[in-house]
Design a binder for these strands. Structure first.
Lengths: 218, 218
DNA sequence: AAGTGGTCTAGACCACTGA
DNA sequence: CAGTGGTCTAGACCACTTG
C-alpha cells in the first residue's frame, strides 16, 4: 500500500497534514484509499486525527503490539512439555485490594485459585487468580485440577477488554518454593484484569521464572 | 461499527467462518464492510485470514498494544520535572555482542553513550546506547550534553522498525550507584533496537528505577 | 455553521494459495 | 486453477468539533 510516503519525507513531528481529499488528488488515488492508509498510521500512533481538526503528525511516541502470553501455547511452542497443577481453590479469601480491583464487595463472590504451570517439569509460571462467581457461577462445577481456569475461561467466557501490567519484583517468599528460586531474586510479575459486558471476570497476579523476557516489535 | 457480533455468540475457537460475501448477505451489509470489520479482528489477533483458506477463529491468544515509553514525555506527563545528564560518550568501545546485534563489524563505527534521565531530580532511567556512525554520522557534531541522543534521533532519523524487550533483572553493580538503588535489587531492564532502511540506527539497553510498571490495555 | 474525518456501498479487478 | 481474501474506486451521507 502507500504507507510511510509522506511522513518520512516532507512532514515532521507536530505538522498538520493536508486534508484527505487534497492528499488523494496530490497522490492520484481515491479519498477512501488515503483514509484507509491514514487509519493504519493512526493505529500505529504516528498521526492524530480529529474531525474538523485535520490530521497531524504526533510529536513522537509510537505504539508497539505484543501477543498476550498464554502459558500453554508459549511453552508448547518452545518445544517443551506443558504441565499444570492446581494448588488450591477456595471461596471467599479475597483481600480488599483484589475486591476493589474487581468492583466486588462480598468476598463470597470470589473464587481464589492458585496454580502452577510447568515447562518440561520445571515450574515456569505461578498464578494467583480470583474469579467472579457473579459473572461466572458455573466455574464452581468445573474440575480445575483437570483444566486450568485460564483455558476454561477463554473457552467459555471470552473477554472483551483486558488490562495488563508488568513489573520487576523481588520473588516473594510464598512464591520462591513454588518457582524453585531464591526469595528476593528478580522476577517478572504480571497482573491481568479481564472484563466482559457484565463486569470483571477474573483478576490474575502471576510470577514468572527468572529470565523471562517479554518481546515485541513495531 | 458491527464488531464482535459473530464471535461472542456463534463461533468458538478454531471454527471456520463463512466467507465475507455470505456474512455480508447474512448481516445485510456490503462485503467491504465485513472485510473491514474482519481486518480489525485480524489486527486484534482474534481471527486468522488466509486467501482461499477462509477466515477462522484463532485458538486463543490476543494482542495487546502499548505506547513505547519515551522518558521525557512519561516523566513530564506524570507531572514531574524532567532532567537529563550525559555521563559519557566514546567511540569504539562496543562489545562483540552489541556489534552482532547491530550487524556491524568495526567498533569504530559505533558511538557509545551513557546517560541518565531524572524525574524531579531523582534518577529514573539509566541508558547505555550505541549509535551507528555509518547510518548517522552527523551525530558526532551534536552536543549530546544539551539534547539527549533519543530526542535528537527521533527528530532526525525517525525509525521505521523496532524490536523491544523487557526483563526483570537484578540491578548490575555499575547501575546501582546511578539509579541510587541497591545492587541486586529487582529492576526492569529493557532493550531496544531500531532500524531504518539502510540498517540499524541504535541499540539501547536501559534500566529503570525499582517499581517501574509497564501498563497496557486491550 | 462549515469543514473535517468516519462510515458505508456496489462493484471491479488482482493475487495468492490450498483443495 | 478456482475460490478466497486484498486492494482500490467514486460517490453518498453522517457526526463531530472547532474556528
Amino acid at each position: 500500500m502507500i504507507h510511510g510516503w509522506i511522513l518520512e519525507g516532507t512532514y515532521g513531528p507536530g505538522d498538520r497534514l493536508p486534508r484527505d481529499e487534497d492528499l488523494a488528488v496530490q497522490i492520484g488515488c481515491a479519498r477512501s484509499t488515503v483514509h484507509r492508509a491514514m487509519g493504519v498510521l493512526a493505529e500505529k500512533g504516528i498521526v492524530d486525527r480529529k474531525r474538523r481538526g485535520g490530521t497531524s503528525v504526533r510529536p513522537r511516541l509510537t505504539r508497539a503490539t505484543f501477543e498476550i502470553p498464554v502459558m500453554r501455547s508459549d511453552i508448547e511452542l518452545s518445544g517443551a512439555q506443558y504441565d499444570y497443577r492446581l494448588l488450591s481453590c477456595n471461596r471467599g479469601d479475597a483481600t480488599d485490594e483484589v475486591m476493589a480491583h474487581m468492583s466486588i464487595t462480598d468476598p463470597q463472590d470470589l473464587l481464589h485459585i492458585q496454580s502452577l504451570h510447568y515447562a518440561d517439569g520445571v515450574p515456569h509460571f505461578s498464578e494467583d487468580r480470583w474469579v467472579s462467581l457473579r459473572v461466572v457461577p458455573e466455574i464452581m462445577d468445573v474440575d480445575l485440577s483437570q483444566i486450568s481456569a485460564n483455558e476454561w475461561l477463554l473457552k467459555n467466557r471470552p473477554f472483551l477488554r483486558a488490562e495488563l501490567s508488568f513489573a520487576a519484583v523481588p520473588c516473594p517468599k510464598e512464591q520462591a518454593p513454588l518457582l524453585n528460586c531464591a526469595q528476593g531474586e528478580a522476577i517478572m510479575m504480571s497482573e491481568r484484569l479481564t472484563w466482559i459486558d457484565q463486569g470483571a471476570i477474573t483478576f490474575l497476579r502471576a510470577w514468572t521464572q527468572p529470565g523471562y523476557t517479554l518481546n515485541t516489535q513495531v
